[in-house]
Amino acid sequence: MTEYTRGLQHEPTHKPERPFFSSGPTAKFPGWSLDKLKTDVLGRSHRSALGKARLKYAIDLSRELLGIPDDYLIGIMPASDTGAIEAAMWAMLDPARPVTVAAWESFGNIWIQDAVKQLKLPNLQVLTADYGEIPDLTTIPQRNDVVFTWNGTTSGAMIPNTDWLEPGREGITINDATSAIFAQEMDWSKLDATTYSWQKVMGSEAQHGMLILSPKAVARIESYDPPWPLPKLFRMKKGNKLNLGIFAGETINTPSMLATEDYIAALEWAKSIGGRRALVDRANANSQIVKDWIEATPWLRNMASDPAQQTNTGVCMVFQGDWYDSLSAEDQAAVPKKIVKMLEERNIGYDFNGYRDAPPSLRIWCGSTVEQEDVKRLLPWIEWAYEKVKNG
C-alpha cells in the first residue's frame, strides 16, 4: 500500500529526490556529477596510448563486473545496442542456415524486419507474441541460429531462464540484452553474441554499444563471408581473421571519449557498491515495490501476466476497470499521457509513459541506478494523478 488513503484528492506529501524514471537513457548513478569524470583523455586521440588504455579499461571493467569468461571477446561498437546487434546479424547469419528470430516487443520486431526485409533470409522461422507475452521458445530447433531479446524493453516481459537452449547446440545465439544485462544474470555458456548499450542499466550515455563474442561466434565470423555488402561500421575482419584490435580498445570509428569516461564512472560506482550482485539486488528491490503496488491497485495490471516473466527493470503496466474500459480507444490512449504530463509539470517523475508502439501504459524504470525511496514516493503521485484524470 502507498503512504496515503487510496482515492484521496489531496496531493501526497513527499516528492522523489531524483525523479528520473526513463527507460533509456536511464537515471545516472546516485551521487553522479560531471566532476566525477576524468578529463585527461578529452581532446586526445582515441588512438593515443592514453585513449586506447581508457577504452580497454572500460572493456576490462565490463568483463569483471559481468563475469564474462576469459575466452570471450568484448568490443565497443558504434551506434548503441542497435549497431552492435545489427553488426552481429550482418556478419554471422547465413542464408544457407536455418535461422529463428523471436520477438515479443518493439525492438525484437525490428530484428525480425532486418531478417525479412534487409537480409532476406530464406530459411527463416519467426516467433512473435503480443506485448506482455513470450512465444513458445521450446519450438526453436537446436540446429537453428537464433536472435532474441532477453528482456522486452517495451513490454516488461523477460525470459525466466535459458532452458530452451541446449548446451552445445549446433546453432549460434545472438542475444540483445540491453535492458537486462547488469540487472539480470546472463547464462554465458549458452550465448554466442551478446549486445547492450551503456545507456540502460548503468545509466550512462547512449553513444556506444557492446558486443560480446564466444569462441563459437568468432569461429563463425572467421569461417563465413556474407553475400551482402557490409558497411564499414559492421566490418569486424581483417582478411579472413577477426580484427582483434576492436576487442582491445581500437574501435571501428571514432568513439566519444566523454561518453567512455561516463561509462567508466558508472562501472566504478557499481564495483564500489558490491558489483553485479548488488546491481541485481537493487533492481529486484525496486521492481518488487512497483509489482506489489500494481497487485494492490485495482485499476492497473502488469503488462506481463506471468510473474516468472515480469522484468525487474522497465516494469510496464496497463489500465483496467469499468471506468477505463468505458472510454474510447483515443481517450484510453490519453490517460497515461495526462498522468505523465501532470507529474512532469510538478517535477515528480519524468519520462515514465509507455513506449509509443506499446498499448497505452506506464513504464517505470527500476534499474540499479534508481533509489528505492524515489520509487516509493512516485507511486502515490500516480494514484493522485489518476484520480484527477478520472474525475476530470
Rank of each mutant, 00 (worst) to 15 (best):
S272Q: 09
V318C: 08
L279S: 15
G239F: 10
S272C: 06
T311W: 04
R235F: 04
A265E: 12
L300F: 14
N240K: 15
P226N: 07
R276W: 09
R301Q: 11
G275S: 09
G275L: 11
R277Y: 09
Y224C: 03
L258M: 03
V280P: 07
G249T: 10
D306R: 05
T260L: 06
D292K: 10
V290I: 15
E250Q: 13
Q310N: 05
A265N: 08
N240P: 04
G245N: 10
V290K: 01
M317E: 07
G314K: 02
R276T: 07
A304D: 02
A278Q: 12
W269N: 08
P229D: 15
V280N: 08
I264E: 00
A259R: 01
K241M: 13
G321M: 09
E261G: 00
Q309I: 01
L258H: 02
I273G: 11
T251N: 03
M303W: 02
R277W: 06
E295A: 10
G239N: 12
K232W: 11
A304S: 11
G274C: 08
P298G: 04
P255E: 00
E250G: 05
P226R: 01
A270N: 04
A278R: 08
P255D: 00
S305Q: 07
P229Q: 11
C316K: 03
S272N: 12
A265D: 13
M236R: 12
F234L: 06
A259F: 02
S305T: 07
N284D: 10
Q310P: 01
A278T: 13
W293V: 04
S287E: 07
R235Q: 15
V318T: 14
I252S: 04
G245K: 04
P231N: 09
R301W: 05
P255W: 00
K291Q: 11
K238N: 15
P226E: 10
V290G: 06
T313P: 07
L233F: 09
R277C: 05
A259T: 02
V280Y: 09
D225T: 15
G314D: 13
N240E: 14
N312W: 06
L242M: 11
R277H: 14
N312M: 06
Y224F: 15
D262C: 05
L258D: 02
F247R: 03
K237R: 15
M236F: 13
T254A: 04
R282E: 09
N312C: 12
I273W: 12
L230I: 15
P307C: 02
N302G: 05
L242W: 09
Q309M: 07
S256T: 03
P307L: 03
A278I: 12
F319G: 06
K238V: 14
A308D: 08
L258G: 01
